[in-house]
Design a protein around this nucleic acid. Structure first.
Lengths: 155, 155
DNA sequence: CCTCATTAGTTGCACACGCAACCAACATTA
DNA sequence: TAATGTTGGTTGCGTGTGCAACTAATGAGG
């Protein structure tokens, strides 16, 4: 462990100013690692991303891949492969739409639905742990500012 | 564009509560896309991540891969491959340390150094654009809260 | 009805990430 | 100094990402 570890860290883009981005990057890494660990400890060997998508399907019912890509902010190509891995784990299934032969509706399998039902409380508990000690007002402030950054970076 | 696009979006982990995580996820995607576009428009076909690492090397001088992995919050395996791609672009070079034959010091090449010198102002300008309309106080608030989440998620 | 444009999904390519296993070089200590 | 442990870096594997090109199916207009 060398001294410059501490001098180098956290300057990132520029010094003197406060840049939120490197903090988000680091925080997301912590969050993803934490959620994976907690889920695994609870017997659910899935990632945060996977849990989120399962929950979205569970809450909203079967969705076309295209729509699922949109609501989860993914490239449709990325979603294709993302669904492949969930399908290999027998958590979701592609069911062709009868209305439109191009469309696959993504369903939860029995197994996927059970997993979600059984573990949703744990999942929400994990989210609560992450936000411990942060008031609702503060959360809203952060979200407002993140929304602002999104606006600033929309083409 | 269907109606449930808007009802589904942004609930993510749980409803009723304010969860910061999905906002960070979305914001980071916007930021990465924005930075890439802006850099490309300025003639620099690199990602935000690549620029950040080049800047760290530029600011701190040659660093062992291990240290670079630490300060950039990466797995050392990930860093190995990350450096590979920068090396292929002739922006950095691995130079064996004379003190310790195990160590590679990562240097900027002439080309890498020139690229960075020439484009650092643009890079900082991009960061400024992202943070437009967000006061220093608000930035500090956000960073404090993100730091709190990091603490909550540290094992 | 038959082009022609659009849309849903897949695939190729390049990039990025973490974990675990591994090797070579260094450090420790008996 | 020989045995043992530790450290820096690479590789294999599985996962995840965006862009561009592609196909099959649908929709619109002549």
């Amino acid at each position: 462990m060398r001294s410059y570890y501490y001098s180098v860290k956290e300057l990132d883009f520029f010094a003197g100013e406060e840049n939120i981005v490197p903090w988000m990057v680091k925080t997301m890494k912590c969050v993803d690692a934490f959620v994976s660990q907690e889920l695994a400890a609870g017997g659910v060997p899935l990632s945060r991303k996977q849990m989120v998508v399962l929950k979205i399907i569970y809450t909203n019912g079967p969705l076309p891949q295209n729509d699922l890509a949109f609501v989860t902010d993914r490239d449709k190509a990325s979603l294709t492969r993302f669904i492949n891995t969930l399908e290999k784990k027998n958590l979701v299934a592609r069911i062709p739409s009868k209305d439109d032969k191009r469309v696959n509706l993504i369903h939860l399998t029995k197994q996927g639905e059970k997993l979600l039902k059984d573990n949703l409380p744990m999942f929400q508990n994990i989210a609560a742990k992450m936000h411990k000690g942060i008031s609702m007002e503060d959360r809203k402030v952060v979200i407002d500012i993140l929304r602002k950054i999104q606006e600033n970076t929309k083409k």
